[in-house]
Write a protein that binds this DNA or RNA. Sequence first.
RNA 1: GGGCGAUUAGCUCAGUUGGUUAGAGCGCUCCCCUCACACGGGAGAGGUCCAAGGUUCAAGUCCUUGAUCGCCCACCA
Length: 916
Amino acid sequence: MPREVPKAYEPQEIERYWAQAWFEEKIYRGEATARGDTFSIVLPPPNVTGSIHIGHMLEHTQIDIIVRWRRMRGNKTLWLPGMDHAGIATQVVVERQLAKEGLRREQIGREEFERRVWQWKAESGGKIKKQMIRLGVSCDWTREKFTLDPPLYRAVMEAFLRLYREGLIYRGRYMVNWCPRCQTALSDLETIHEAREGKLWHIRYPIAGSKEFIVVATTRPETMLGDTAVAVHPEDERYRQLIGKMAVLPLMNREIPIIGDDLVDREFGTGAVKVTPAHDPNDFAMGRRHNLAEIDIMTPDGHISAAGGAYAGMGRFAAREKIVEDLKAQGLLEGTTNHAMSVGLCDRCKTIIEPRLSLQWFCKMKPLAAPGIQAVEDGLLSIVPDNQKKIFLDWLTNIRDWCISRQLWWGHRIPIWHCGDCGEMTPATDSRVAVVDGRAQIAGVPDKCEKCDSGKLTQDPDVLDTWFSSGIWPLSTLGWPDNTEDLRTFYPTSLLISGYDILFFWDARMIMLGLHLAPGTKIEERIPFRQLYLHALVRDPHGMKMSKTRGNVVDPLEIIEKHGTDALRFALTVMAAPGTDIALSEERILSYRAFANKIWNAARFLFFNLEKIETLGVTLEELAAQEIRANAPYATRDALPHQWIFSRLAEVTRQINEALENFRFHEAAHVIYHFFWGDFCDWYIEWLKPQLASGNREDTIATWRNLFAAFEYALLLLHPFMPFITEELWNRLPQAAGAKSISLQPFPKAHTGWLNSEAEHRVALVQEIVVAARNIRAEAKLDAKKKVAADLASDNSEVLNRTSENLDVILRLGSLSALNVQPGKLKSREGAVRSTSQFDLGIKFEGELVDAGAEAAKLKKEKERLEKDVASKKQRLADDTFRNRAPAEIVRGLEATLADRQLEYQKIVERLAQLE
RNA sequence: GGGCGAUUAGCUCAGUUGGUUAGAGCGCUCCCCUCACACGGGAGAGGUCCAAGGUUCAAGUCCUUGAUCGCCCACCA
């Protein structure tokens, strides 16, 4: 490492260097830090759909802070990284690429398509990994996993087969959400709802054998082709007599029954509803209750099927228009009203989904949800923030079966074979997988049908929902179903940090599947993680969700190249108060880049002086003594600043530990920020400067040791938040010689022995005095370069004596009290006074005139404020109920404050009188 | 239709068991390129804490109602 230190911090090269070094030296291996209690966490695996975005960055930053902090505190720490094949999301991306070549996946076939996706995965996955390494996340890359790796593929097979044999996975023809573009079923969670202005068409259905009509209202007239009934509420007086009669379905000329069902809302529309069991979830339920035919009138790609008579072959929206037109022509359209409604869209491609009757695989959820509810209610799994707990429990309580099959080609293929003769199903013999061309496929292929011994078996073409494999991520990444050492050591994991947006998708599924599948008899042995922290989402500066279509996505790597990872990390951390989303702006990042620069320059101050120290005859070894921190603060002639800064350090450490314990990242970041910038730089270093320039050798050494010790201590505290700059600077410290990485050093302890309220109190007074003096100087517009004379009258003369020699340097005062200006006698033309109950400070202006009017105005304003304050306090203290009911401590405190204020008030009144 | 969250300085936001003069960053005004740092130093201005009730000796903080905005869930044809 070169010694020269540029004036402004340039993070790019330094960050690249350390990111690479940490990665190559594998210092974050699970075994490498094998010491105390285990702390394990899995990375929510990013999708291999592109690259890391700012949301990942926030998540990775928070995890990294906790992980670095835990590791430094001596936990045996594992952060396990990996990626998700992201079934439908990735398939959509590759399909779009194909579309650019004018191709569809059916044209190139399943095998070629899969080859293309693997190729994409290699590129995207590689890019993501590179990015993550650049972010400096301290995960164990030697354990990196991918959901389609053979061992993980096998774990998925095992999970499926177990649930299948237990009857928790079943196949059946039910209503599912169907995306006509992706041509696959979707789970309820994968459909999003968007408010749209729709229409409600009122259509006349003639009553058979009569001239009457029954008018039904619908938002999707095209589905009438599949109507098999008209339903009314059984107690609806308007329609009751029609129940049991037949209606004639217009356009199709089919007689359909009029039924009574209390699902019908009498208030809505006309109170009569057309029933299309194959294309609407409500109608489906009604259909099953009343044994209605289920007529599927739509093809998988959203066209009208042969069952749709004259409309066959038309697109679903074209058919709608044509049908409305035809109804109008036949006089069967009674009217149209506007209707606010919400349409379901495919989460991935935003195509309007079609509820569709379809043969799919489902997972029974009620039995899986019960232990999850119990785990949360018993406190074996804690959820932060607390309000998410209720949301989570509500969802688990009202859970419905999960459609787990997808008509996709990218994913884990369902290990079930269908018999060509009897049609029955035969599962794989076991979960073993074979590796063909580096890719896993099921090995336990059954050779004959379980039911009829036929050999005509074909494997189910569907793949599993991608969340099925992510649902066992903590298990599969640690080697399950084998009883591996990793599984024994690191499962259950300690914590999961994820966005609240995937609470149901992922977190809940992991909890349910983990509790069901993990070995162990107790819930606490099987739970996949003991704590769940849900972080906020990152939004653009206007609070809008970031999306490519809005064009407001922020590329983290761009920011990193501009301002550095540490600055971005710190900005995200400070803004990440739990519960509220983050609006990220570049300005905010800039101010934390400035913070990095501040740290850098504080270090420059120390390093510059290393040479000076050497000229004093002090060796770096003396400065680098192992116990340098342990023995601080070292005694010096003026002990106050050292006692104070180490007292602050002890307190700040306690606060950081407590905040991180409770995932209060922003609080921890604020504490360290203000400590470093305010306490350490603005006061401590400035205070020490004059002492470092003069004094005897012993004193100087002790002062330097304190300074270096405090600085190193601060770097250690900062490291989880800003890993790069702290690593770089720590390595340049004399005491770090030969040590490996700051990230493997012990996190500072909150030394209670350093706490010194006396010192803190006295320094607070010094600070008040200094601020008062600066205030006079600024308000009086004194020449900043000129020295001035001042006089300080204080009850606390000891403090004055100990600090006065420094004040003159800090303030560029002529020596304090040398001129013996009596604040009480200072004339307005000569100077100004600031008074508190603790001290009076007068500054005499040599030959310059103060603006007496301005001074008087200021004092008047202050007087008014104090008047009000004193009055309200007096009133309060005069109130007997207050005196009787408030704690004595509060009353006493108020009395003391009142006395102070009155004294100040008195002084101001006197001063004002003088000015007039 | 349920549920959750937000509303505090010009802007973006902190403010964990109620307690004495409500904070930060940015922006703004004034002074200073003082030998770590102008990505800096110093001093300031700026707030009836959304509204109305209530509980309490004491409310930004707790309760009720309402307003505005945002999000989530839901089988509103």
